[in-house]
Amino acid sequence: MNRPASDSSRVAATTGAAAVAEHPHQPFAVRFPGFARRLPWLVLAILALFPLLAPTFGLEYYVGFVRRLLIVAIAASSLNFILGYGGMAALGHAGFIGVGAYTVVALVEAGFSSAWLAWGGALVVAGLSAALIGAVSLRTRGVYFIMITLAFAQMLYYLAVSLRTYGGDDGYGLYTPLEMGVWLDGVHPDVFYWVVLVIAALVFACFSRVAHSRYGHALRGIRDNETRMVALGYPVYRLKLAGFIAAGAVAGLAGGLLASHNAFVSPAMMHWTQSALLLVMVMLGGLGRRWGAPLGVALWLVLEETLKMHTDYWHWPLGVLLLLAVFHAPQGLAALSERREGGR
């Protein structure tokens, strides 16, 4: 019972230090450069071994939990990319998750059974929706951007409610698992877990990589001083739109995976509180920090899971946590250890 919590605190302590590695002038990374560089691999190795070790500790149940955590972390990473690096406060990100999930449903309903086709379709269709929604939304600023992205997500929500072919309000059950191909299906009961892990690792590596590329620097420049970026000659609108589309597509992929994970899809996935929750997790972890999204997701879901085990009243402690975070750790978890290091 204590296990998940202590796991997460260890991850928190170590991954926070890795965030320091991004800033070469921070003492920790200077003193332990090798460790900081190897840390992502260490985390990956632990996660990869988890399904094999779990039965020994009686933690089989948590393999599914970690799988969900990884999927949510994919979605959160994509939000962190546009919000944390790009400064785009989108409050409709769950809409793209929903688009991805319903794309899987549509493909299954149409008779397709390949997981790769379904997830790829989720990625593409969500990316296309993001292109349309972003093209309109990115013409607005500030609160109006928040509201218009929310409005579009609400439209998608009502669209899903009305799709009676796909279950409408009641949702749609995916009774047969999608096929991942002969090389994977049936090899091991937890093969889907490793597939998710690989996808999550790839997504995470990609976003980390992009953050240091020309594009990543340009995106941060737009976040910090949009007018100056225009005056420097950057096509700001197109750069933002590209990021928005990429984030929407990745969220859609997460939605597709979530559909497989739950074997169920419903409009509730895109309720506005889900978008808010995603935003909350990213901020809790640390906006615009490499490890912000996975940290925030891990903290939130582990706490939620732990609290649910003990009480029906598991919302309010999370609410209190948010208030504490706002007043005591406004930069997020990933920044906490950084600040401690910097202050030394």
């Binding site: 590329s213 594009y215 340009a218 970026m229």
Partner: peptide, 24 residues
């Protein structure tokens, strides 16, 4: 980094997203 950002706007595409900028 300020100067790099300014120089980058003129030299090639800023949509390049995989190569580390520090390596250029």
């Amino acid at each position: 980094d300020n100067l790099l950002l300014a120089v980058q706007a003129q030299a090639g595409s800023s949509f390049r997203c995989l190569r580390r900028r520090e390596a250029e």
